[in-house]
Simulated scan of single mutants.
Amino acid sequence: MSTPRDLAHAEQRQRILAVARDHLIRDGAAQLSLRKVIKEVGMVSSAIYRYFPNRDALLTALIVEGYQNLARDLGEVRAPEPEVRFRELASRLIAWGRAHPQEFALIYGSPVSGYAAPADTIEPAARVVAPFLDAVAAGELAGELAARSVEADALAAQAAELVAASGVTLTPGAAVGAVEAFTLLVGAFTLQLGGHFVGTFDPFEPLVDRLVATAAQLAGWAS
């Protein structure tokens, strides 16, 4: 059972994160300053280190929170048909990025100078990919996907590790297809976020429809 002190600590930690998130949205991850966050929260500098020992720890907490928020949003997609679910997940991923551009940039964009994400971020990141793998696994089980082989031994071994870690039943070819599809979606939106489609595919929505369809094809659906 949590003590009042534990609850107070958790509440203050969330307050610090909320202020840090506001700074992230306003200034971007590279400009995130622990000193500025401390000042706005109204804490003495020594006190904040009980919650976050340095800027990297604060960045890690924001990254984990970003993955959790995105995974929670994707978890609302529950279409029973595997291909429909996959397409809805793809659209939802991009829609979340458009609604939360700085958070998307933090978890998938350019790395922050001097920061290396620790192992703590691996499990939250996997929770984002999991629903895509589940949809592909359901499609493969239903016989909807085109059969794909993985000829490169190294790639097949990596696919097998992914399947083992995810706990889903997938052939290596289907696993690789799912990763290719996810990579396409994240990469395309990252380009859009960086302004690389301004003056060309702007507005972005018509291209999103094509990207979602292409992602489904990469994952193995023929339609």
Score class of each variant (00 low, 15 high):
residue 47 A to E: 13
residue 152 A to L: 15
residue 203 P to C: 12
residue 131 P to Y: 00
residue 76 E to R: 14
residue 197 F to P: 02
residue 26 R to Q: 13
residue 218 L to K: 02
residue 3 T to G: 08
residue 27 D to T: 06
residue 57 A to E: 14
residue 23 H to L: 10
residue 156 A to R: 15
residue 30 A to D: 14
residue 206 P to A: 03
residue 168 V to C: 09
residue 164 A to T: 12
residue 176 V to I: 15
residue 139 G to E: 04
residue 183 T to D: 10
residue 67 Y to C: 01
residue 81 E to N: 04
residue 7 L to K: 09
residue 32 L to C: 02
residue 157 A to W: 03
residue 110 S to A: 15
residue 10 A to C: 05
residue 166 S to D: 10
residue 103 E to S: 09
residue 201 F to H: 12
residue 70 L to N: 03
residue 111 P to G: 02
residue 131 P to L: 00
residue 199 G to C: 09
residue 25 I to G: 00
residue 24 L to I: 04
residue 179 V to A: 07
residue 72 R to K: 13
residue 189 F to T: 01
residue 60 T to D: 07
residue 209 D to I: 07
residue 139 G to Q: 07
residue 81 E to A: 12
residue 49 Y to R: 04
residue 34 L to E: 08
residue 21 R to H: 05
residue 16 I to G: 04
residue 217 Q to W: 11
residue 43 M to H: 01
residue 104 F to E: 01
residue 63 I to W: 02
residue 100 H to E: 11
residue 189 F to W: 10
residue 26 R to K: 09
residue 207 L to E: 06
residue 37 V to C: 08
residue 128 V to A: 03
residue 53 P to H: 03
residue 71 A to E: 08
residue 142 A to W: 04
residue 45 S to I: 00
residue 175 A to M: 13
residue 58 L to N: 00
residue 43 M to V: 05
residue 38 I to W: 05
residue 86 F to C: 01
residue 146 A to R: 14
residue 52 F to I: 09
residue 76 E to F: 04
residue 79 A to Y: 02
residue 73 D to M: 01
residue 187 G to D: 04
residue 97 G to W: 00
residue 168 V to N: 03
residue 87 R to W: 00
residue 141 L to C: 09
residue 100 H to R: 12
residue 174 A to F: 11
residue 214 T to S: 11
residue 134 D to E: 14
residue 42 G to V: 02
residue 45 S to T: 04
residue 110 S to M: 11
residue 25 I to R: 13
residue 35 R to Q: 15
residue 117 A to N: 05
residue 27 D to G: 00
residue 46 S to R: 09
residue 222 A to F: 00
residue 130 A to E: 14
residue 28 G to V: 03
residue 212 V to W: 01
residue 51 Y to Q: 05
residue 1 M to I: 05
residue 79 A to F: 01
residue 105 A to E: 12
residue 103 E to N: 07
residue 212 V to C: 05
residue 119 A to S: 12
residue 19 V to N: 07
residue 40 E to A: 09
residue 89 L to F: 01
residue 167 G to K: 08
residue 154 A to K: 07
residue 140 E to L: 08
residue 13 R to N: 06
residue 143 G to V: 10
residue 74 L to V: 02
residue 33 S to N: 00
residue 54 N to K: 12
residue 197 F to L: 10
residue 67 Y to H: 14
residue 188 A to C: 06
